[in-house]
């Protein structure tokens, strides 16, 4: 009996101790905790330093996608209207976020490291149509020294779809 009572009092002491410790709550919408290094959030389409898009419209990501969430349509690049290095670029790039399971296979499949799952995670929609993220929503801003696409470039410079990467990771 005394054993029971001492256990009960011990339990109450623990709750009282917790009561005077400061709460661990993070006040979410005001304070956001940074995500982990390998967090898989919303996709982004990357650019080269000169502003050209890394995506070449090869649709390997769409092929790798187990949820069939990605739709890619490619068009031809010319030196007057150039979006990306090489022959083709993605004229349409759509990801249905209701289908995406954030597995990251698209990242693995991408030959140019164009698609990366980044740290954005607030993906809420009011209707199903707005769950489809288009290329405009996915692509990152042009770097400071870069130019907006489409660019007018000198002929014969950007002939390779996959340029030699200086520090491949």
């Amino acid at each position: 009996m005394l054993g029971y009572i001492s256990e009960l009092i011990k339990g109450m002491a623990i709750t009282m101790r917790h009561m005077i410790t400061p709460p661990v709550t993070i006040q979410y919408p005001e304070i956001k905790r940074p995500v982990r290094y390998r967090f898989k959030g919303r996709h982004e389409l990357k650019r080269y330093d000169n502003g050209l898009e890394k995506c070449i419209g090869c649709a390997l990501c769409a092929a790798a996608c187990p949820a069939d969430a990605i739709f890619v349509e490619a068009s031809e690049n010319t030196d007057d209207v150039r979006f990306s290095p090489g022959e083709r670029y993605a004229s349409t790039y759509e990801i249905n976020m209701l289908r995406c399971i954030f597995c990251g296979y698209c990242e693995d499949a991408c030959p140019t490291e164009a698609i990366v799952l980044e740290d954005k995670y607030e993906l809420a929609f009011y209707d199903r149509a707005s769950a489809i993220y288009t290329k405009d929503m996915l692509i990152v801003d042009v770097p400071i020294n870069g130019q907006q696409t489409p660019q007018v470039v000198e002929p014969g410079v950007f002939t390779k779809s996959i340029p030699i990467m200086e520090d491949p990771k």
């Binding site: 709750t15 009282m16 917790h18 009561m19 410790t21 709460p23 661990v24 709550t25 006040q27």
Partner: peptide
């Protein structure tokens, strides 16, 4: 409030 504080919540 008290329950929350005892569970280290707000």
């Amino acid at each position: 409030k008290v329950l929350a504080r005892m569970q280290v919540r707000v």
